[in-house]
Design a binder for these strands. Structure first.
Length: 488
RNA sequence: GGCCCCAUCGUCUAGAGGCCAAGGACACCACCCUCUCAAGGUGGAGGCACGGGUUCGAAUCCCGUUGGGGCUGCCA
């Protein structure tokens, strides 16, 4: 078998030093697409060689986020913290072969000499001192003084680095811990990685990796693909510390994983036909690293919200409801799912075309569950209290509503849940509006605010029907009493 | 400062020398639909950073400038 026939093996290698943000998710996604396209393997490797900043809880978050996005991994997770011996063995090999040398320079030493020299980076002071590796001594790689190192990149073509511009970088810290450059190359060779797909920020370290790779073995070089970074509104690389773009946060606000997946896919790549909302199958069929954009992309939440709205609306009512229920359950811990679903289901279709996220269901349906109930103060003030017809209208509506409900038998209504149907409620309000000589749009406002609590929301008649006559009447009577009290 | 990457509407993009007086989508504005709000429909405003080349012809190729970004750590 020739090298060319080798199975595609890619890796996603996050470092667990903070919450998992959307930039990492996109890198993982592109790796996944590439692996699946080529019938290859996706390996997950946790780069936790920085013991100071790494934490297993972050690893947990990465795992959960990948699962949520349906990015399934074939191997791993491997933990670099558990493979230290491998890196140290490679370090020894490099020292023995003369590719690396021990260095006892402190940071200050280097700084001081730099003042005289004015050249940045390490000055190769220890290169020919013949120090033996040991306590308090770092191990540095001997970078060639001449020649160039060329990075073969699927996204950017060939990128050339003059070796003189690369300093003798550290492979092993003076405390004996291996550094990521070493660990990454050792692992990529050990795990037979064929394609390294990662963010562009790694491009400057790639020539180092290549030099190391060749010094370590004669394995075929991996092919690189450096993806443009994701930036914030200020065009800076997304940072875990600065930018609030955790995958977990989007999940909590009710972004659908398929919407996130789709949005991430088209952030930096577009299918030939220009379509933007599509199933993963299409990306699998058409995705091409060579077509990935070269420039940084802004993670536009507004656009994500649009994608999410599209996905929500394409859901079957039952599915939509099932996904929304947990959000309501969280907002109203006292309620059982059954209880929520009973009123959610009949309103599912009118709700799903009014939300961009699942969390927004809570806001739209709160009138069903709030207990005690109280309307939005601003809306109530403006559309009920300050209205010159609200009192009259509400009274009229309430009278007619009761009449329809009791149906000529005032005693037949104890607490019947039968209620009044949508068409009848509408007919009643039309009559009220006509009596006042105003339009239906105007007439619905006081009723809406008094019963549903806000000036905007679900279609009034559907909402009233599902709410049920008891609460409708109680809230209208409350409004009436309040208006009467105020009139004095 | 040094090295490297990048540059099409505000944003994400289509564009691989003539099909481009630059197309689509988000956001924005207007109108239609309409019980509110949405959703949906129709329309509108809005861009090839600049300067040189190459070419019969450049958003597309080359050079420079400017601008932005990344890296420059015994972080990843």
């Amino acid at each position: 078998m020739t090298d060319v026939d080798k199975e595609v093996r890619v890796r996603f290698a996050p470092s667990p030093t903070g919450y998992f943000h959307v930039g990492g998710a996109r890198t993982a996604l592109y790796n996944w697409l590439f692996a699946r396209q080529h019938g290859g393997k996706l390996i997950l490797r946790i780069e936790d060689t920085d013991t100071e900043r790494s934490d297993s809880s972050w690893t947990e978050g990465i795992l959960k986020a990948l699962e949520w996005l349906h990015i399934d991994i074939d191997e791993g997770p491997y933990f670099q913290s558990q493979r230290k011996d491998l890196y140290l063995a490679a370090a020894e090999k490099l020292f023995l072969s003369g590719h690396a040398y021990a260095c006892d320079c402190t940071r200050d030493d280097i700084e001081n000499r730099k003042k005289e020299d004015s050249k940045p980076g390490y000055d190769n002071y220890c290169r020919e001192r013949g120090l033996v590796p040991g306590e308090g001594r770092a191990l540095r790689f001997r970078v060639p003084d001449t020649g160039v190192t060329i990075v073969n990149d699927l996204v950017r073509g060939e990128v050339e680095f003059a070796n003189v511009s690369i300093e003798d970088f550290v492979l092993v810290k003076s405390n004996g811990d291996p550094l990521f450059v070493l660990a990454v190359v050792v692992d990529d060779q050990d795990m037979d990685i064929t394609h390294i797909i990662r963010a562009e920020e790694h491009l400057p370290t790639t020539p180092k990796a290549l030099l190391l790779w060749k010094a370590l073995s004669n394995k075929r070089l991996p092919v690189f693909a450096h993806l443009p970074v994701l930036v914030n509104e200020k065009r800076q690389k997304l940072s875990k510390r600065r930018d609030r773009v955790a995958v977990e946060d989007y999940r909590e606000m009710g972004i659908l994983p398929e919407a996130m997946f789709n949005y991430l896919t088209v952030l930096g790549w577009a299918p030939k036909d220009g379509s933007e909302i599509f199933q993963p199958e299409k990306a699998l069929a058409e995705f091409d690293l060579g077509q990935v954009n070269h420039s940084p992309a802004f993670f536009d939440e507004k656009r994500l919200l649009f994608f999410n709205g599209q996905y929500i609306r394409s859901l079957a009512d039952e599915d939509f409801m099932a996904r929304g229920v947990p959000y309501l359950g969280k907002a109203y811990p006292g309620l059982g799912n059954e209880e929520i679903m009973r009123v959610f289901m009949p309103l599912a279709s009118v709700t799903k075309e009014r939300v961009a996220t699942l969390a927004e269901c809570v806001d739209l349906l709160s009138f069903l569950f709030d207990d005690p109930f109280s309307p939005d103060q601003d809306d109530y003030q403006k559309l009920v209290k300050e209205s010159d017809f609200a009192g009259e209208l509400i009274k009229d509506f309430l009278d007619r509503f009761k009449k329809a409900l009791y149906q000529d038998d005032e005693n037949s209504f104890p607490d019947s849940e039968k209620g009044v149907d949508i068409e009848s409620i509408k007919a009643i309000l039309v009559e009220c509006a006509d009596a006042l000589g105003i339009k239906l749009a105007k007439a619905q406002a006081p009723i809406r605010v008094s019963v549903l609590g806000k000036r905007a929301g679900l279609p009034l008649f559907e909402a009233l029907e599902v709410l049920g006559p008891k609460k409708v009447m109680a809230r209208l009577e409350n409004a009436l009493a309040d208006l009467a009290k105020n009139a004095k």
